[in-house]
Amino acid sequence: MATQSEYVIETEGLKKSFGGQLAVDGVDLRVPRGSAFGYLGPNGAGKTTLIRMLLGLTRPSAGTMRVLGRPMPKERSLALARVGAIVEEPGFHKHLSGRENLWVAAAAREPAAHLRIDTVLEQVGLADRADDRVSTYSQGMRQRLGIARCLLSDPEVLILDEPTNGLDPGGIQEFRALVRSWIAEGRTIVLSSHLLDEVEKICDHVAIVDRGKIVAQGSLSELSTGDDGAITIGCDEPHKALGAIDGNGSLREVEETAAGLRVLVKPDASLEKVAAELNTRLVGAGIAVHRLEPSHVSLEHRFLEITRRLGENS
């Protein structure tokens, strides 16, 4: 009997190796119920392999996993009955129509899944083309059909692997709106992506994965807390500007860019105060400042910093 756990997905020491090469290396993952969870990592980090294990598509080499409180793969059919997923590029029978493909998928689900076909086609904006063959669909339409297929099971958890691949900007906007509506309905979203911006815009919880290992995990605000701030300075004579701000004890790192400088500010310093102080110094040194933009370090920077640091240590 499954318990209503705080986490919809829990893994412990999950490993998967291919011919001695570890693709997933001791992953302990906890996806909170009702969250939009980003599984973020560069290409080849082992994101898809983890998802494939969670969905019973491949067996783990070691470790345990639970989906919706049920052990996998032992109670696979019960665990996955309320999970919808897109793994890599969704596949379809191209000689069938979109509606027929959903019919085929619904046949593997509970009988009520057939009743949801029209609704999900409407939701993803494919109702007008539902009876056309999938071979005539664009890649974006196939992606939408994949999303529709996910929804057939009225899922508690949606696992989406690079879901915006092939979507045009309008489609991406619509997709984000859909995800927000799913979250509002209380569903849990697991979004695997190498697109940091995508994760930042959609998710409230993140795990950063690199070379098969989770290197950071928590809420977006937790991962951002304690981060350095950054100030982008647009000015003439960047080299001279570098000398002018030298010696400021609040700065951790200064980098010369084509349009000026980019400085990283220590976490304990006030970003706004440091910006004002730098401006005073630069103007005092006779340097024309045309841009001064304080910002918190984005998840992207944090992500690159973590993965770069790991790369240097290895």
């Binding site: 969905l55 598509l57 059919s77 590029e89 969704p90 596949g91 029978h93 998928a105 593997a108």
Partner: peptide, 14 residues
């Protein structure tokens, strides 16, 4: 060949 097998298996169906 159509990659649909993966999606059918991920439904949890035996």
């Amino acid at each position: 060949s159509s990659n649909v097998f993966r999606d059918l298996v991920s439904t949890g169906r035996s």
